[in-house]
Computed example of a mutant assay.
Amino acid sequence: MTDTPSAPHPRTRLDDNFASPIRFSLMASLSDGVELDFAALREILQCGDSPLSKAISHLQAAEYIVARKGSLGSRPRTWVHSTSAGRAAFAGHLQALREIVALGGGPAL
């Protein structure tokens, strides 16, 4: 055995902000700077208002997304888009997942 330090396991680069399946799916939905409204996200993610609202609040606090409020006609609306920091963090998270799979000899993602 050598005393050469090995590189840290890729799991150490996983971002806990994406640990929730809804937050993970939300970021995946907002790739490439897409902006979606709350109702569209709720339909895409197939979740209720409360879990989606909590996911948005969490990712907004991490500065990974921006939610803006406005109205369409007389109806209030919330639109959400990812920030460059959020897209970079999500890309890093995905890369760490790919490296974990590769270490295990599983299929490439």
Rank of each mutant, 00 (worst) to 15 (best):
M1D: 04
M1R: 00
T4D: 10
P5D: 00
A7S: 08
P8Q: 08
P8K: 00
R11C: 12
T12D: 10
T12F: 05
L14W: 00
D15T: 14
D15K: 12
N17I: 07
N17R: 12
N17K: 06
N17Y: 05
F18S: 02
F18R: 02
A19P: 02
S20M: 06
S20V: 07
P21L: 08
P21Y: 02
I22N: 06
I22P: 01
F24M: 09
L26P: 10
A28E: 14
L30H: 04
G33F: 07
E35L: 05
D37V: 11
F38W: 06
A39M: 05
A39N: 10
A40Y: 00
A40F: 07
L41E: 04
E43M: 07
C47Q: 00
G48Y: 07
G48I: 06
D49N: 01
P51L: 07
L52Q: 06
L52D: 02
I56Y: 03
Q60V: 05
Q60E: 13
Q60D: 08
A61V: 02
A62G: 10
A62Y: 04
A62V: 10
Y64S: 00
V66E: 15
V66N: 14
V66L: 15
R68V: 15
G70C: 11
G70F: 12
G70S: 15
S71N: 15
S74K: 13
R75N: 11
R75G: 09
R77N: 12
T78V: 15
W79P: 09
W79N: 13
S82F: 03
S82L: 10
S84G: 08
S84C: 09
R87L: 08
R87D: 06
A89G: 11
A91Q: 13
G92I: 08
H93V: 11
L94S: 01
A96V: 09
A96Y: 08
R98T: 03
R98G: 06
E99N: 01
I100C: 09
V101L: 14
G104N: 12
A108L: 00
A108C: 00
